[in-house]
Simulated assay, not measured.
Amino acid sequence: MTWMVTGGAGYIGSHVVQAFRDEGIDVVVLDDLSSGVRGFVPEDVELVEASILDTDTVAETLRRRACVGVVHLAGFKYAGVSVQRPLHTYEQNVTGTANLLTAMEQSGVHRIVFSSSAAVYGTPDTLLVTEETPTSPESPYGQSKLIGEWLLADQAIATRESAAPLLHTSLRYFNVVGSGRDDLYDSSPHNLFPLVLDALVAGRTPRINGDDYPTADGTCVRDYIHVADLARSHVSAARALAEGRPLEPVYNLGSGDGVSVREIMTAMASVTGIAFTPEIAPRRPGDPARIVASGELAARDVDWRMTHDLDSMVASAWSARQAAGRS
């Protein structure tokens, strides 16, 4: 049984690949390396260097490797940048997903786990986001992820009377942090953990955007989940689809309580041993005070468990940052 992991050379994708291998499941990676790292793919795992926009190559790989399904993580993921590059975002995330589904149909592959995003919710008016919370994305990135979910749902409807109806589920999540191994790290220029760690290594003082929110310590509260926990649920969802077990169309992978930005800064200082007092900058427009998701449904169906606390999340990220030796 072989699964294709699109975007499998990226930070999250490489952890999904590792989780599959830990379960003894064969994988093939498809990644154009626009943001992925060749070295993140194990030497004994085939890497097909191609875009999901390349329908012919995707279809040929699915047939040649006799894939039973796809875990789809490839895409352009930067919400803020997507506002400046909407056409690029839609091409990568919407056209790319449509082309992937076309390749799957051509190849007789009818199972897909889609890496969606909590960005589909925008700024919800509830303290705890559930799968029933209305979607209202506020960026081209969030819109593109929601459209991706629609594409899967529509293709499932179109194929439901066929011999191989599309089986699918989408996993929505907020902030993915930490490292499952020292050689797999987050190098995003937009994510909080690498921004703080890079600042500390460079001797700069990390910054908090706003400390006057209506929260316990005045800073924003968000859902932070460990990448290895996230990867495990992708594999669990893939197993369920392969075994024909019914899944919901979407699941939130959330902590249920969240942590504040100030709590993260405190953990960063404690774990790294680098004492600092964060600078306080003005609020960023549009930042809600608190967004936290429930993971109850995912815990029931796709083995969603928070096995890392904040300190271990920071410690694993710091260990990988040190091992990488980036300056």
Rank of each mutant, 00 (worst) to 15 (best):
M1Q: 11
V5Y: 10
G7C: 06
G8L: 01
G10W: 08
Y11V: 13
H15P: 11
F20D: 00
E23C: 10
D26A: 14
D32L: 01
S35T: 14
V37M: 13
V37Q: 13
P42Y: 08
E43S: 12
D44F: 04
E46D: 12
A50W: 04
I52L: 10
D54K: 01
T55R: 15
E60L: 04
R63T: 13
R64D: 07
C67P: 01
C67R: 07
C67D: 01
V68I: 07
V68A: 05
G69Y: 13
V71L: 05
V71C: 10
V71H: 02
H72E: 03
G75S: 04
G75P: 00
F76P: 00
F76A: 02
Q84W: 05
R85L: 04
T89F: 02
L100K: 10
M104C: 02
M104I: 07
S107W: 13
V109S: 05
V109E: 09
H110P: 03
I112M: 12
I112A: 03
S115Q: 08
A118P: 14
Y121S: 03
L128P: 06
L128R: 10
L128T: 08
T130D: 07
T130I: 06
P134Q: 14
P134C: 07
P134Y: 09
T135W: 08
S136K: 08
P137D: 11
E138V: 14
S139Y: 09
S139H: 07
S144Y: 13
L146C: 06
E149C: 15
E149K: 11
L151K: 11
A158N: 08
A158Y: 01
T159K: 07
R160Y: 01
E161I: 04
P165D: 09
P165Q: 11
H168R: 09
T169F: 00
S170E: 06
F174P: 09
F174A: 12
N175D: 06
V176Q: 00
D182I: 08
D183S: 11
Y185R: 13
S188M: 05
H190V: 13
L192R: 13
L192G: 03
L195G: 07
V196E: 00
R207L: 14
R207K: 15
I208W: 10
G210C: 02
D211I: 11
T215A: 00
A216E: 15
T219R: 01
T219C: 05
V221A: 08
R222N: 10
Y224V: 09
Y224H: 09
H226A: 02
A231H: 02
S236V: 07
R239G: 03
R239Q: 14
A240G: 06
A242C: 12
A242N: 07
P246H: 09
P246Q: 12
L247M: 03
P249K: 03
L253E: 06
L253Y: 09
G256F: 03
D257S: 15
V261N: 04
T266R: 07
T266Q: 15
A267I: 08
A267V: 00
G273K: 13
G273M: 07
I274T: 08
A275C: 05
F276L: 03
I280Y: 02
A281L: 14
R283F: 01
R284A: 14
G286H: 07
E296I: 00
E296C: 02
L297G: 12
R300H: 11
D301Y: 05
W304F: 02
D309Y: 00
D311E: 12
D311M: 00
A315L: 09
S319G: 01
A320N: 03
R321Y: 08
Q322F: 04
A324K: 15
G325Y: 15
S327H: 11
